[in-house]
Every structure is written in structure tokens, then in C-alpha cells.
Design a protein around this nucleic acid. Sequence first.
DNA 1: TTTATATGACTTATTAGTCAGTTATATAAC
DNA 2: GTTATATAACTGACTAATAAGTCATATAAA
Lengths: 214, 214
Amino acid sequence: MSLTKWKERERKQRQNDIIKAARKLFASKNFNEVSMDEIANEVGLGKSTLYLYFKNKESLYFAVVLRGTRIWAHMVKDEVKKDDTGLGKLKLYGNANRRFSNEYPDDFRLLYSPTLIKKQFDTDKMNSSQEFQEVRDLFKEIMHIGIDSIQKGIDEGEIRPDVEPTEAAILLSVIYNGKVNMGDWAKELLKSRKIDDAKFTKDIGNFFLYMLKK
Amino acid sequence: MSLTKWKERERKQRQNDIIKAARKLFASKNFNEVSMDEIANEVGLGKSTLYLYFKNKESLYFAVVLRGTRIWAHMVKDEVKKDDTGLGKLKLYGNANRRFSNEYPDDFRLLYSPTLIKKQFDTDKMNSSQEFQEVRDLFKEIMHIGIDSIQKGIDEGEIRPDVEPTEAAILLSVIYNGKVNMGDWAKELLKSRKIDDAKFTKDIGNFFLYMLKK
DNA sequence: TTTATATGACTTATTAGTCAGTTATATAAC
DNA sequence: GTTATATAACTGACTAATAAGTCATATAAA
């Protein structure tokens, strides 16, 4: 019995190795630009072996995305607990996102990558994947934490009442999205002005808070 | 002589037809996801014919991008002339971008698409294409119009002096970028709150100006 | 008859997914 | 302790599909 369990864990471990290798590749390249052979090579397995752990390429891809989304959702939920005011929660929400982007850069890039956003997948394979459903749900949950914090801040009188919480939360997400996919020319321009990524991120956060605060 | 000229024009016309068909397809799909056969089919020509007008797929792609970028740069330069103050120019700069996104949605999406941004092209083919060089230069020019307007506004005392012009201009571009690649879930969320795209765009513009103004 | 324009059929390369067969490991029998 | 056997993990070679780019040939215009 404990043997079966050990086997089970071994299997999960392997699966995780594959996911981690795939994540590394999917973070820098499109779904279509990463081949199963490449992933297999990265883990040090034959391509056929991947199909023992995942039904098809889409399934593996969404397993990668789901793993990242779970980490993200966990970090956000955990952080937001630490304050009771709306404005406080909003600041923590921003911190959590920033921390996630620093500690899990591959996942962050992947989750905000247009590959995920654009529905370039086989619709059947996508909809039949319960991984994808869970990703969608977690995205919505995370977004609602932001929206609800802003609403709470308005109710408590610390955030301007003319702010539309949904619009503001989406704008924040749009900024993250844009920043991840920022062109090289923009990066170079910032660099030439000696503005590093950390400063830019921080300034955006301040800018955003300044906007919302009364 | 006038015959040669007429021929020349005929040829340019054909080339333009191909570019327009390609633009339509590249606007909604990745570089790799659009096939030359598909483009040829869209114009009503055989695939081989495309190679009489463009050296290879990359060359056609950059011809599409360049066409859009030229329109964009033209609109921005033309608009900004209409006011002499920095803040006024900045507002016109925003207007021009908004007008471009409305009148040339395919080009707008294409220019901000990550396909263009990520260097997923054959480096040799890309660098050897003078179309790509011109696109880069025009991008920089457009960006500098924004930066210079903000700087002028600061000098004239209408924009807060603690604003970093480069940072602010890039943030604006990052927002555009993010908005174009916004996920379906965000669009649905906005829709459910009865916020249409025009309102969202306008609010972002106001938000941005409010930030910068003294 | 010459020249420009066009194309269908072909080549070459890539890649998702399959499958028959191999290797390694655990259990059982003696 | 050794050998046989069952089971799980794995893989190389294959198939089928797709797509960029080429080329010999056809058509139409001058």
C-alpha cells in the first residue's frame, strides 16, 4: 500500500519535471513554436514518453498554465488577508502581483502571454480540458479580489467615488499585460534613461494608487 | 515611356492588393499561423505568384507592417502640428493614436501585436530587410513626438515637473499594447458592466492626462 | 516572336501523434 | 539466492499532415 503511494508520488514528480521543462520553453516562445521533441529533450526523455503523462500538447500546455495560475492565486489570496481596509488590500494586491512577477517570472510572462489570451487552440481540445476551466475561474477570482478591494476602498471613503472598480482593475491588468509584452525598443529607451525595470514597475504602482486615492 | 509607367503602377497596385490581403490575415493570427497559400487564396492568386512580388514571407510581412506604420506616423505628425503648446500637442498625440486605432484597426492590432515585438523571426532575414529598419525608425520617431510634447509641457509649466517624459510616454504605449492584447475574459467583464471600448479608451486617456497635469 | 505574368506540381523540412518492441523493476516460485 | 514472470516505464522508427519555397511550363500582351 505504501509502495503504491510511493509509486504515485514518483509519477507526480516526473509529471512535474515535464511541466517545469515545458514552462521554461513556453515562457519564451509561442505554443506553436515549441515542439514536443524540444520539451522531451529538455527533460531528458523521449517524446513518446510525454504522451504517457499528458494526453496531447494542449493538455500539457494547460497543465503548465494551471500550475502557474494556482501559485499566483495562492499568493494573492494569502497577501490580501493581511489588511482589512480596502485601500490596504489594494496595496497588498499590487505587492502580491509584483512578488509573483519577480519570483516566478516564467509563469508571469506565460500567464500574460497572448498565446494564452488568443484562442488559437483547437476549441474542442481546449473546452474538453478541465485545466483550462480552472484557469479561467482562477483568473476571474483574482480579478475580483482587485475589484472588491477598490469597491471596499470607495465605501470606506479612501478611494475616489467616481472610480469604476472594474475599469480600474482591468486597467491595472492591461498595464501588466502590456509591460510583459513590451517591445525591445521600449526597453532600450528606458535603459538609455537609466530607468530599470524595478523602478518602472514601482512608478507605475505609485501612479496607479495616486490616481485612485482621494 | 508612359507605358512603362502605367505598367509600374499596375504592378504597385497588385503588390498593394497582396499587402491588404496579408494584413487582414496577419491582424488576427500569428506570423506562423498564416500560410502563404492562405494569403494567395485571399487575393485570388496562386502562391507562386506572391514570390514574384515579395522575396519571402518575412519580406511580405514587413511590407504590411511598414505600410501601417507609415500611415500611423503620418497621422501623428499631421495632428501634432495643430497646436503649439506641449500639453496641447500631447492631447493631439492621443487623439491621433485613437483615430488611427479606429480607422485602421487591423494595422493598429498588427503594430502592437507581440508577433512584431517578439523577435521570432529569422535574424538574418529580419536585419537584411530595410523595411524592418524603417519600421524601427518610425516607431522611435512617433515615440519621441510623445516624449518631446511632455517635456515641452513641463518646460511651459503645464505638466508636473516630477514626471519622467520617457517613462510616461512608454507607459502610454504599454497601455495601448496591453489593451490590444486584452483577454476575452476582460472584454466580457467590461461588457457586463456596460463599459464599451470607446468609453474605456476615453477614460484611460483622461486618467492619463489627469496624472500629468499640474 | 518576345517578354512579363502567372501557376500547378514538386521538393524539402518540420512536427503531432502512434505503436511495436525494449529495458528495467518488482513479485513469485523454487 | 537464483531464476522465471508480470508489470510499468520508456523509446526509436514510423505515419500523416502542413507549409515554405522552386521550377518548368502555360498564357496573354506587345
